[in-house]
């Protein structure tokens, strides 16, 4: 039996208030963070200038030089009370994305190594990576870049000791039961298991940041030939992905 984590409400400098739902990156704490942020946003408090969610927390940007922390804290505590946020419904307006990607081969050279680290044969690893509907746990590190979870326990693989010097934009990299889809070329200790042509940040596009926390993502296995065909006609950065509204 695990000890229940009581949500923490803390000030972050004079820049805002953070509500934290766990001390480990669990699926329940992440669901709570996304749902709670959505619930507070829906209240439209004037002192909240913007909000965001991280893996386990919801952040509300408030100028604490103009609004007393204790007052904001008590208001947030009132919203927190009386609900199990880890079981809450996620906000409306989320999307399901189906994103084509190549797994293994020269375009994703660490697929076999990652499967072995997870103790799976390549077919089982591929079934996990394409059969699991993942949630955008948080967006960060680079603009629009999603951390996706949560894969099964087998995928609790550590980061490799050394860094891969430059894993390309659109890469799917795996570690600690998560997949990150790179917004730009990045040195990383996570393993390069897949490659897409999906652009997470499109500064001049109609929708600069296509993904949002709470969205769901499912990867579809394609051939390297098919990926090359998508890349040749990818001016909008969509990478062949399909977006559907989630009810």
């Amino acid at each position: 039996m695990t000890v229940q984590f009581s949500p923490l409400i803390r000030s972050v400098g004079l820049g805002g208030v953070l509500v934290t739902f766990g001390d480990k990156a669990t699926d329940g704490a992440n669901r709570a963070a996304i749902a709670f942020r959505g619930a507070v946003d829906a209240l439209g408090w004037p002192e909240v200038e913007e909000s965001s969610s991280t893996l386990v927390s919801a952040f509300f940007r408030v100028d604490l030089a103009q609004h007393r922390f204790e007052v904001v804290r008590d208001k947030l505590a009132t919203v927190l009370d009386g609900q199990d946020w880890s079981a809450a419904r996620l906000p409306e307006g989320r999307a399901l994305w189906t994103i084509p990607a190549v797994f293994g081969g020269t375009r994703a050279p660490q697929f076999d190594e990652a499967a072995e680290a997870a103790g799976l044969d390549p077919a089982a690893a591929l079934a996990d990576l394409t059969g699991t509907r993942l949630r955008v746990l948080t967006i960060g590190f680079a603009p629009g870049q999603p951390y996706l979870g949560t894969l099964g326990d087998a995928w609790d693989i550590p980061r490799q000791v050394g860094l891969s010097p430059n894993v390309p934009q659109g890469a799917l990299v795996a570690a600690v039961r998560q997949i990150c889809l790179f917004a730009k070329d990045t040195p990383t200790g996570w393993r390069h298991v897949g490659q897409s042509a999906f652009r997470c940040f499109r500064p001049k596009g109609f929708e600069p940041f296509p993904l949002a926390p709470g969205d769901e993502v499912q990867f579809a296995d394609i051939s390297a030939t098919e990926l090359a065909r998508i890349e040749a006609h990818n001016a909008d950065g969509s990478g062949g992905a399909v977006r559907e509204e989630l009810a």
Partner: peptide, 9 residues
């Protein structure tokens, strides 16, 4: 640019 924290910017 304020308002893009949730988008990673």
């Amino acid at each position: 640019r304020a308002g893009y924290l949730a988008k990673g910017l």
